[in-house]
């Protein structure tokens, strides 16, 4: 258990980002006045954007630990589009965009160039949404893993192609309605399929570090960034970032949804080193998946009169499988 998790209860303990009763050094970087604000105001993300928040949380922690020596390579996607509409940028870091599918390869190149110039103390980050990570850039990502290039890859997973109008991706959950998985037929929305967990695929590459994180738990997220930063080689961080536009949820509920995804078991928080699971963040207050799904219009058909209950049961079964597989719940 890290120092941060071991703080004695003090009103809200470690559940809030900061805590005036704790030493600021043990609070999250987000709670400090001098955080880097790597992703600054004025960007054009929608109200309540989880991705903008996840990116600031992750990169601010990288900035702190690398003493601002960071280079970020960004894949095409919402994050790229809303932060850099010409002639403006919201990034307070050296930041590079090339194509949709090649961010891991570009980052590998940046890292090689820095090495050639003797600048190995610069941390190289590659980042993208689930579209570029799970689908389009997956080949490049797998190559980066297989070569164990010294890059920390961060995926901000909002479970579809939001920027282009909410099309299904390999990370879209079963039963979710998107522009390309409409409400038709006996089982409306996305099909159940086989699933495609990039964290698990990354683990199968045996890379030094793989972790899942959420914007609903900033201390856990920052701890995982720090753990990744303490290692060399290819590292992978998968951050769950709700999207009010694509999910049909209220902008104010973004953190709440991220939290409910974890508490329901649908989004397990775990970490692995060299392909071996080393830790999980337990569920604190277990809830049925309904509580999470009902707040999102992309799932409303599951609760309509006459809906096939097998669909909702299938989603619950997924959550239950996660809870059993990762041993996420200590209660009855």
């Amino acid at each position: 258990m890290s120092v941060k998790e071991n703080i004695e209860f003090a009103q809200t303990g470690n559940l809030t980002a900061g805590n005036r009763l704790q030493d600021i050094q043990v609070c999250s970087v987000q709670a400090t006045q001098d955080r880097a604000n790597a992703l600054d105001s004025g960007h054009r993300a929608c109200q309540g954007c989880g991705e903008a928040l996840g990116a600031r949380m992750a990169i601010d922690k990288v900035m702190e630990l690398s003493k601002n020596k960071v280079h970020v390579v960004n894949a095409t996607g919402c994050l790229e589009v809303f932060t850099t509409p010409f002639p403006e940028t919201s990034w307070n870091v050296p930041w590079l965009h090339s194509l949709f599918g090649n961010a891991p390869a570009v980052a590998t190149g940046v890292q090689a160039a820095l090495k050639a110039k003797g600048m190995e103390d610069v941390t190289v980050i590659a980042q993208g949404g689930d579209g570029s990570t799970v689908d389009i850039g997956f080949g490049c990502l797998s190559g980066m893993f297989e070569r164990n290039d010294d890059v920390l890859y961060i995926c901000y997973d909002n479970e579809a192609y939001m920027n282009t109008g909410v099309q299904r991706s390999g990370a879209t959950p079963p039963t979710a309605r998107t522009a390309t998985t409409p409400l038709s037929g006996p089982h409306p929305g996305n099909n159940f399929g086989q699933g495609k967990s990039v964290p698990k695929i990354a683990m199968a590459h045996g890379i030094p570090y793989v972790a899942t994180a959420t914007i609903a738990n900033v201390r856990d997220l920052e701890r995982k960034v720090a753990k990744a930063m303490s290692m060399k080689g290819a590292r992978y961080l998968h951050i769950h970032v709700p999207c009010p536009l694509g999910w049909g949820s209220l902008p104010k509920d973004t953190i709440k949804l991220a939290r409910l995804a974890v508490e329901s078991g649908l989004y397990p928080l775990f970490e692995a080193e060299q392909g071996v699971l080393t830790g999980v963040t337990k569920i604190r207050k277990k809830i049925p998946v309904d509580e999470y799904l009902k707040l999102q219009r992309r799932f409303t058909h599951l609760f309509k009169k006459g809906a096939d209950t097998a669909d909702l049961e299938g989603v619950q079964a997924l959550a239950d499988a996660h809870i059993a597989h990762y041993n996420l719940w200590d209660g009855e």
Partner: peptide, 10 residues
């Protein structure tokens, strides 16, 4: 508790 400061995406 710094929550407001932390959760603002903007």
């Amino acid at each position: 508790c710094d929550n407001c400061y932390t959760v603002c995406p903007d």
